[in-house]
């Protein structure tokens, strides 16, 4: 066993455990970064995903927005200001470690939390619809904390 490698791995694991956001998803893409990527139409869903960040993440049984989440939503509100004909849906989701009916309400609360933030930043409320899928539309299919972190989210999509 290479001690050095083991140490490096352990640090990565610790960082992952401390972070609010999953290691496999990033919330911190700079606006405009890669905007010139081939084939991505500005103002499209792909643009939102690649260059703005389409989702924010939550703690277990929580709906409060982290600093990371707020900066993602700041970019979303700027993007929505720029593409003012775009309407969006925000879908709230939960991990599998909660009961079904409560999770549907919790997902709605997460979607509403993201929506309220965008509205406070000047996006017209009429442009945003919300929905909750509870735990029925997970992004990650594993049964571990890394998957659950990814699944506690609010995802914005162009309608």
């Amino acid at each position: 066993m290479n001690i050095k490698t083991f140490g490096a791995l352990a640090i990565v694991a610790l960082l992952a455990a401390c972070s609010d956001s999953p290691t496999t998803m990033t919330e911190t893409k700079g606006a405009g970064a890669g905007a010139a990527s081939a084939g991505i139409v500005p103002g499209s869903q792909e643009d939102l995903v690649a260059n703005v960040g389409d989702r924010v993440f939550f703690g277990f049984d929580k709906s409060a927005l982290s600093a990371d989440s707020k900066s993602t939503l700041d970019r979303q509100s700027a993007w929505l200001a720029k593409y003012s004909s775009n309407n969006v849906q925000i879908a709230g989701n939960c991990d599998e470690r909660g009961t079904e009916e409560y999770n549907i309400a919790l997902g709605a609360r997460r979607a509403s939390s993201a929506r309220d933030y965008l509205v406070a930043k000047g996006v017209a409320g009429g442009r945003i619809t919300t929905i909750s899928y509870g735990k029925d539309r997970p992004v990650a299919l594993g049964s571990n904390e890394d998957a659950w972190k990814q699944n506690r989210n609010a995802i914005t999509s162009v309608r």
């Binding site: 709906s63 549907i104 309400a105 709605a108 609360r109 309220d116």
Partner: peptide, 9 residues
């Protein structure tokens, strides 16, 4: 039944 709204239900 329940209805969602205002961040709760």
């Amino acid at each position: 039944m329940a209805q969602t709204g205002n961040g709760g239900s």
